[in-house]
Design a protein around this nucleic acid. Sequence first.
DNA 1: ACAGTAACCTGTTTGC
DNA 2: TGCAAACAGGTTACTG
Length: 270
Amino acid sequence: MPELPEVETTRRGIAPHLEGRTIKGLVVRQPRLRWPIVPALKRSLPGQKIHAVERRAKYLLLRLDKGTLILHLGMSGSLRILPADTPPNPHDHVDLLFDGQCLRLRDPRRFGAVLWTRSDPAKHKLIHHLGPEPLGNDFDADHLYQKSRRRQGAVKNLIMDGKVVVGVGNIYASEALFRAGIHPARACNRISQARYQRLTEEIKAVLSEAIEQGGTTLRDFQQEDGRPGYFAQQLQVYGQEGEPCPSCGKGIQKKIIGQRSGYYCSHCQR
DNA sequence: ACAGTAACCTGTTTGC
DNA sequence: TGCAAACAGGTTACTG
């Protein structure tokens, strides 16, 4: 479900409900997510105040008194703010309780995570090796070009590699490559600096636009209040196999690249 | 350092 | 209609 725009949309939605509030309890109905939720959290979280809700890559960081709660939504996770007494659905695995309200994690496929660290989350094992934020100044054409030089694999895999740049998932990788006119399977080291400049700009543009629209809802993504994201209407190639290219009218093609479906126009993208 | 694959899960769609 | 296979927005871990 969530790529960077969906996670950022979630962050913006939940932050006003959480910042400044004190955790009253933790309910874990299913501890077996990507990694097990440690039982000690039930004891250590209550009483701690949430100072900020931040994001690094697709991780949400809840800065508490004594450390940071790290949340990841995996493929199918979503967070909602609900009245504390709302009956849970089958895949509602975790509630963070406040006075009258709760933050509820729903995640049918259980690829998500709830982790705790007492030290700087930037140094956490799952975060320290990550590349720059796509919307930050550290991500630019020079960076992408340098990372591309020794790689012979498909460019789609390059931009989806979290060590190169974070937050670009399967939807927005296809969209950015279409907008940049680059074939997703083209070898990284056979693309010019000028074309990487364009690709960098299109990655930033498509992610920014998607955030403005509240993300992309394909099947089950919802914002914290239950509304869908509206960027699906703007998708030009993702999921559009056989449909006419918005630019030239030729049929959109689908090809498996790095175990994931890539969508592209073989006329407009070279 | 890089490339390719399997794995973690469940729900929905597709194909015979 | 029914059942099984294929597929889905992410990421790690392992192999060569």
